[in-house]
C-alpha cells in the first residue's frame, strides 16, 4: 500500500535520512524503532509533506505519487499523522479538535460514523466534549490527537512516539486502542522507542540508526535481533 523508495532528508548540511526504503501493506501495523535523533520524525514528516525530501525519492500510496504534494492535501490522500508532542489545538475544545480532524473533503461523508467509533474507543472524550483540550491530562490529550487523526477517515494512520511521557498504565490503554484501530482495517505506521509494547502491537518493523535502516523483519525476529536487544532493551546479545 505505502511504498517509500530512496528517501533522503537533509537539514542544511546535516543528513537526517539516508536512502531509506520502506513499505506498509494494506491493514498492516508496522513499527519504526530508533533512538533519539535517528530520523524517525523526519521520516513521518516527509510522508506528510512537512519536510521536503531530496530529489529522486518516490513516496506512493497505492501507486499514487505523494512526493511534492502540499501537506494540507495529504489527509485527502487517506493519510493522517499524530505528530510528536501531539500537536492538538490546545485552545480549542475536544469537539472542535475532532471537527477539524474532519476538515478534509475525504472525511466529510463518514464523519458521524467516525465520531461514534472514536467515542466508543475513548469514552473519556465523549464525557469531555466541551473541555478545552489544553487543560486535559497527557493521556487524554493523546486521545484527542488520535481521535482528531481518525476523524479524517485515514487508510494509513501514522503515530510519532505516542507513548512519550505517559504512565505505563496509560500507555497500555492507548496501545489497546491502537490494536482496535488496526483491527478495524486501518494500516498503522508507528514510530516508537518503547520496544516491548510496540513489538507486541506490530506485525513487522524496521530499525533506524542515524538516518539508515539497519534492520528489518517480523516482530518476532526483531525481538531476537541482537542490535535491537542491545540498543533498547539494555540486554547483551
Amino acid at each position: 500500500m505505502l511504498t517509500l523508495d530512496a528517501l533522503s532528508v537533509r537539514y542544511g548540511k546535516h543528513i537526517a535520512l539516508d536512502n531509506v526504503h520502506l513499505r506498509v501493506d494494506p491493514g498492516e501495523t508496522v513499527v519504526i524503532l530508533g533512538a533519539n535523533g535517528a530520523g524517525k520524525s523526519s521520516l513521518l514528516k516527509a510522508i506528510s509533506g512537512l519536510v521536503t525530501p531530496e530529489p529522486g525519492v518516490s513516496i506512493t500510496l497505492d501507486g499514487h505519487e505523494l512526493a511534492g504534494v502540499a501537506p494540507h492535501r495529504i489527509p485527502d490522500e487517506g493519510i493522517a499523522l499524530v505528530p510528536e508532542g501531539r500537536g492538538i489545538f490546545t485552545a480549542l475544545t475536544v469537539d472542535e479538535n475532532l471537527a477539524l480532524g474532519a476538515y478534509s473533503r475525504r472525511a466529510r461523508a463518514g464523519e458521524a460514523r467516525q465520531r461514534d467509533f472514536i467515542f466508543d474507543l475513548f469514552p473519556r472524550l465523549a464525557e469531555r466534549r466541551k473541555q478545552i483540550a489544553g487543560t486535559m491530562s497527557g493521556g487524554e490529550q493523546q486521545m484527542v490527537a488520535i481521535g482528531r487523526a481518525l476523524m479524517s477517515n485515514p487508510r494509513l494512520l501514522m503515530l510519532d512516539e505516542p507513548s512519550l511521557g505517559l504512565a505505563p498504565v496509560v500507555v497500555g490503554e492507548l496501545f489497546d486502542a491502537l490494536g482496535r484501530i488496526g483491527a478495524s482495517g486501518v494500516a498503522l505506521l508507528l514510530v516508537e522507542q518503547n520496544v516491548t509494547i510496540s513489538l507486541e502491537l506490530a506485525a513487522r518493523g524496521y530499525l533506524l540508526e542515524v538516518g539508515r535502516v539497519v534492520g528489518e523483519g517480523s516482530a518476532a525476529e526483531l525481538k531476537e535481533d541482537p542490535a535491537v536487544r542491545q540498543a533498547f532493551l539494555g540486554l547483551n546479545a
Binding site: 506528510s48 512537512l50 494540507h72 492535501r73 489527509p75 505528530p83 500537536g87 477539524l100
Partner: peptide
Amino acid sequence: QSAKLVGIN
C-alpha cells in the same frame, strides 16, 4: 503546523 495536518491551507 497542526492546521496543515488536518488539511487546512
